[in-house]
Amino acid sequence: MQKDQLFTRRRMLLAGAALGAAGTAGAVLAVGGDEPARTAAPVAGPQARQALKSSAFRLQPLTGYGPPRAAPRKLKTRHEPIMSISGRGRHMMLTFDDGPNPEYTPHILDTLARYDVRAMFFVCGECVVENRELLARMADDGHVVGNHTWTHPLLTTLDRKEIRSEMERTSDAIEDSYGERPQWFRAPYGAWNRAAFQLGAEMGMEPMAWTVDSRDWTTPGEGVIVDRIENGAAPGVVVLSHDAGGDRSQTVRAIREWLPHLLDSGYHFTVPRRRPS
Rank of each mutant, 00 (worst) to 15 (best):
K3V: 15
F7S: 14
M12W: 10
L13E: 09
L13I: 07
L14K: 15
A15E: 12
L19W: 11
A22M: 08
G23Y: 00
A25D: 10
A25C: 07
V28T: 11
A30W: 04
V31D: 12
G32W: 00
G32Y: 04
D34G: 14
P36S: 03
A41Q: 15
A41F: 13
V43D: 13
A44F: 00
R49V: 14
S54I: 14
S54L: 14
F57K: 02
L59F: 11
P61R: 09
T63G: 12
T63K: 10
G66D: 11
G66N: 09
P68Q: 04
P68N: 04
R69D: 12
R73K: 13
I82G: 08
S86H: 01
G89W: 00
R90G: 02
M92K: 02
M92Y: 01
M93D: 06
M93F: 03
T95Y: 00
D97W: 00
D97C: 07
D98V: 05
H107Y: 06
T111V: 15
V117I: 14
F122I: 03
V123A: 04
C124G: 10
V129S: 07
L135G: 07
M138D: 03
A139F: 00
D141W: 02
H143G: 03
V145D: 09
G146T: 05
W150P: 09
W150I: 07
T151V: 10
L155V: 14
T157D: 08
T157N: 10
L158H: 03
I163S: 10
S171Q: 14
E180A: 12
E180N: 11
Q183Y: 13
W184A: 06
P188I: 08
Y189I: 11
Y189E: 09
G190Y: 06
A191G: 10
A191H: 14
N193A: 00
A196D: 00
G200K: 02
E202N: 08
M203R: 11
E206F: 05
E206L: 14
S214H: 05
T219F: 04
T219H: 13
T219M: 13
P220F: 01
G223A: 13
V224W: 05
I225H: 04
D227I: 03
I229A: 04
A234W: 04
P235A: 06
P235V: 07
G236T: 11
V237Y: 08
V237G: 06
V239R: 02
L240C: 06
L240M: 02
S241K: 07
H242R: 05
D243E: 12
D243T: 14
G246V: 07
R248D: 05
S249P: 07
Q250N: 12
T251D: 00
W258F: 15
L259T: 06
L262W: 01
H268Q: 14
R273N: 11
S277W: 12
S277M: 09
